[in-house]
Design a protein around this nucleic acid. Structure first.
Length: 184
DNA sequence: GCCAACGTTGGC
DNA sequence: GCCAACGTTGGC
């Protein structure tokens, strides 16, 4: 690839399409139809194959970054804009001028533990993230490489913490060990 | 081109 | 369910 991969964040309400839905999709891939915001569309036009995407659950309990995915198909017309029966139908769109576009993304990983918005706000290195800006509503947004890296790293840490907590919880149920002299 | 009214998003 | 922050629409 000519350029380095870029990094993005895409929002979805888990009620309509969750990362678990993505995991169950054929080839763990979905098209990102239904975006009806020009800025978000323009960002999708900037995407190239191999770009990495943070998957975010909005209006969730709690809202959180829940995993990562990869762009596998670059922007092409969003056919749902042409379908009068579709919820995202746009009467201004035509076959010649589709207006709206979408990309395909494929699941990379589901984080062992979601990273809630509240946790992300505590992290200094993420202070400039678009997602954390007051009143930010962009459903498709760029993420700095550094921010992407930090989020993925945090997800790894959170997983470790959760594992240790689970172990601790399970420990009291375990049989008390017979003491024996250690050779060490 | 201005701007009020309206609709939507999304955290809380 | 509330409401702040936006984006869009349409009258003028």
């Amino acid at each position: 690839m000519a350029t380095k991969p870029s990094f993005w964040l895409m929002k979805s309400e888990p009620e309509s399409f969750s990362i678990q839905d993505l995991a169950r999709s054929p080839k763990k891939t979905t098209d990102w139809s239904g975006v009806r915001n020009y800025q978000a569309r323009n960002f999708m036009r900037d995407m190239t194959k191999g770009d990495r995407v943070l998957f975010y659950h909005s209006s969730a309990d709690p809202s959180a970054v829940v995993g990562t995915s990869v762009v596998v198909k670059e922007a092409y017309p969003d056919h749902t804009a042409l379908d009068p029966k579709d919820h995202h139908y746009d009467p201004k769109a035509t076959k010649e001028k589709p207006i709206w576009e979408m990309v395909d993304i494929k699941l990379d990983e589901i984080f062992p533990e979601p990273l809630p918005l509240g946790e992300l706000r505590k992290v200094k290195a993420l202070a400039d993230m678009e997602l954390l800006r007051k009143g930010s509503r962009l459903s498709v947004q760029p993420v700095r490489p550094r921010e992407f890296e930090v989020v993925v790293q945090l997800a790894g840490q959170a997983a470790g913490t959760a594992k240790r907590a689970a172990k601790k919880k399970a420990a009291p149920a375990a049989k008390p060990r017979k003491k024996r002299s250690s050779a060490r």
